[in-house]
Every structure is written in C-alpha cells, then in structure tokens.
C-alpha cells in the first residue's frame, strides 16, 4: 500500500475539520433532539402522573364521600331507631299499666255490674245458649260450638287501648 503524497495531510485538514464540524453539529442536534424528546417524555409522564393522581384523588374523594354518607346515614338511622324504640317502650309501659289497672277492677264495687254487662254482651254475640266462664284475670270468656268470645278484662283493655291509638301517640307528640 502506498502512502499519501506529502502535503496531502495538510490539504485534507479542512475536509477533516468540516467532517468533524458536521459530525459535532449532528451530535449536538441528536443530543438536542434527545434532550427535547426526553423533556417531552418527562412532561408527558408528569402530565400522566398528574392526571392519574387527580383521578386517584377524585376517586378517593368520591369513595370517601360515599363512605362518609353511608356512615352518616347509618348513624342517623341508629339515632332514629333509638328514638322510635323509646316511643315503643313508652307505649308498652302504658299498656302494662292499663292492663294492671284493668285487672284491679275485679276488686272494685262495680265489678258485679260489669260482669252482668259482659254476660249481656255474650248474649248479643253468641246467643243465650252460650257457655260462659269467668276469666282468671276478670271478665268472661264464652263459647258456643266452635265459636268463642273473649271478654276478659285484659283483652278488653288491650282492644280499648288499640282503639285509642291517637291518644296514646300523644305520649311522644305533646
């Protein structure tokens, strides 16, 4: 292989310099492009991360709101049920007192007249052939064949209380 003529190296210097400059420029452009694309990718990633974070925050907020609403609803329900249970307890107390007072009628002076009136009611409902017995808690029970009438004092007291539900409700409405 023959070497280049003397002086050619010096003659090629501008070419080398030009190639070097172009290569350096291309490298700089590539590096710039890489940097620009990296910046774009980073910005895009940041946007995506921000959007994901926003969605997560929104989903979390929605879930938390739904959860809080549900907890709050259940607490309100519990409070409301406590109030209703207190009303029911009042009603049951009243019923127990009315039943106790009704049973006490047995010892009153009016009891014989009351019994006569109840026997009269049995006659109206079942007829004169009905078999009538006194109830242990006062009042009467009667039967005729498969038909029966319960006019015991507790039953009558319970039915009377039921027919006066409006007045009973005044325990908690007034």
């Amino acid at each position: 292989m023959r070497s280049l003529p003397s002086g050619s190296s010096a003659a090629a210097a501008p070419l080398r310099a030009a190639i070097h400059d172009r290569a350096a420029a291309a490298a700089r452009a590539t590096a710039g492009e890489a940097e620009r694309r990296a910046a774009e990718m980073i910005a895009d990633a940041e946007r995506q991360a921000s959007a994901i974070a926003d969605r997560a925050v929104e989903a979390g907020r929605t879930a938390a709101q739904a959860d809080a609403a549900q907890r709050s609803a259940r607490e309100r329900r519990r409070a409301h049920e406590l109030q209703l249970a207190a009303r029911e307890s009042l009603r049951r107390d009243l019923e127990a007192r009315v039943l106790a007072l009704a049973v006490e009628l047995r010892t009153g002076q009016e009891y014989p007249r009351l019994m006569d009136a109840l026997r009269g009611e049995v006659g109206t409902l079942l007829g004169p052939e009905a078999t009538i017995e006194e109830h242990p808690d006062g009042g009467v029970v009667a039967s005729l064949g498969a038909r029966r009438v319960d006019l015991s004092l507790p039953s009558l007291a319970r039915a009377t209380l039921e027919s006066m539900s409006g007045e009973v409700a005044e325990l908690w409405t007034t």
Binding site: R148, L151, L156, E162
Partner: peptide
C-alpha cells in the same frame, strides 16, 4: 264494645 268479636 271494642274487641268484642266472635272468634272461630
């Protein structure tokens, strides 16, 4: 009379 009903 309230409650005075025939039962079967």
């Amino acid at each position: 009379l309230p409650g005075a009903r025939v039962s079967h």
